[in-house]
Amino acid sequence: MAGMPGTGGTRMLAWSFVGPALLLLIAFNLFPLAWNIVLSFTNADLSGGTWEWVGGRNYATIFSDKSFAAKYGAALRTTALFTVLAVAIELALGFALALALRRDFRGKTPLLAVLLLPMMLSPAVMGLFWNLILEGTYGPLNQILGLAGLSQPAWRTEFKLLCLLLVDVWMWTPFMMLIALAGLNAIPAQLYEAAEIDRTPAWRVFARITLPLCAPLLGLAVLLRATDALKQFDLVMAITGPNDQATQTVSALLYQTTFANQKVGLGAAYAIVVLVGVIAVATLFTRYLDWMAARQGREG
């Protein structure tokens, strides 16, 4: 708006465009965030009653209380493991699928539509469906394994984190594939033609043309998926519940603290800590992406 003429009419028009969005932002983002910060310095309880200011006691509990710090540490480890594994597998599978689907072939459009279906469904509903698929005795997966003469494990009790990973990978690999496909399609065809004229081996073409030129978009996809996976909650709720040590992510512990244990003040402080952590990771990653883009620019 800096370049706009400062007449009252145009200023009003500008505010009428920006105002509603600004109000929504304040009502649904800034106010809850500010309120959450206020709550984090109180001993607020879910069921009401009087609150008292407790200063930084909630933050001290998170970092120094032996019991909570142990739970927080375990949740942090579970979340990190889940995020790294889920994003890495989704990236590898998504990129491989994108490479396979890069060229036009008969039936490509319906195949793409089917592949994209999982990411369009609700994670909570998918979690409940997968619960049935992974059921130990009558679940379809174990029925198939049984027919093949293989062992039929109790998936949801013996391999809890694996179950979460399985469903997450099934849901979000198509997202990675979509972004990778967009990246691959944006690579100029002349580069491949030049490589073909030079008889460059396929692996070298992949390493020197395909991967580097796709990398910025893949990086963006990794950033988006990683920030999403760091907040993993719905699948945990649907598959194992928020209080299972093996799958308690930071978001599940946040829910457990605020709603099940009804400690709103402590939960608010914990939410701030989680938020700062996610922002820090995202900032580091965007800096890395900027650095990569700048390096490519210099090399290009």
């Binding site: 059921e135 005795t137 174990n142 949801r156 009790t157």
Partner: peptide
Amino acid sequence: APAGAANFDYVQCLESFTNGS
């Protein structure tokens, strides 16, 4: 107990019985 019975809530216990197993 059936496979997965280390995590059976009220409804899952009920189902394991009413499904006849």
